[in-house]
């Protein structure tokens, strides 16, 4: 199984990965939107953290072995994909109780408030992470 390798020392802080993630997870515009643009970029599920005076740190879901988000969800909406190893959120099952957003100790599950209130997290793009594809320095690599 491929893994997403993160090498913070290689990160230049260009945030191409955030952009790639936002477009890879584009969502339909909320009902009642005035200008019809079809899809809108989603909330990036990873962030680049600029640590003062030091490196840039790509912050993204660790796909924990014994993941708290999975344990938090009483409805089985969060489960590991056997093919990619990613913990995926099935939004059809989600009741928006938001416990997972509080449960992840690393802040990797969030409410995408602007887009009708979907709860979102990294899904490794179902096995072809857009962030790694667009990372020019190899700080994020899928291999």
């Amino acid at each position: 199984m491929s893994r997403l390798q993160v090498t913070p020392n290689r990160c230049s802080g260009c945030r191409s990965c955030e952009m790639a993630c936002a477009f890879a997870h584009a969502v339909s515009e909320p009902a009642g939107a005035t200008a019809s643009l079809g899809l809108q970029p989603g909330r990036p599920r990873l962030r680049i953290w600029a640590s003062p005076g030091a490196a840039f740190i790509p912050m993204l879901c660790l796909q924990c072995d014994d993941a708290r988000c999975v344990r938090a969800c009483a409805y089985g909406a969060l489960a590991r994909s056997e093919t990619t190893g990613a913990i995926e959120l099935d939004s059809r099952r989600c009741t928006r109780c938001l416990l997972c957003t509080a449960a992840c100790p690393f802040g990797n599950v969030e409410l995408e408030a602007a887009m009708g209130g979907l709860v979102v997290k990294c899904d490794l793009c179902h096995g072809a992470p857009a962030c790694a594809k667009f990372c020019p320095t190899g700080a994020l690599a899928w291999s």
Binding site: A54, A102, C104, F106, G107, E110
Partner: peptide, 29 residues
């Protein structure tokens, strides 16, 4: 019921992410 530490539950996702990043930053440094 799930045994989650109250300290983790007491922070919003953005602040949890920040706390993690600071730790990672130290390790990287």
């Amino acid at each position: 019921s799930l045994g989650f530490p109250s300290a983790d539950l007491a922070r919003c996702p953005a602040c949890n992410r920040k706390a993690t990043a600071v730790t990672f930053g130290r390790i990287v440094a």
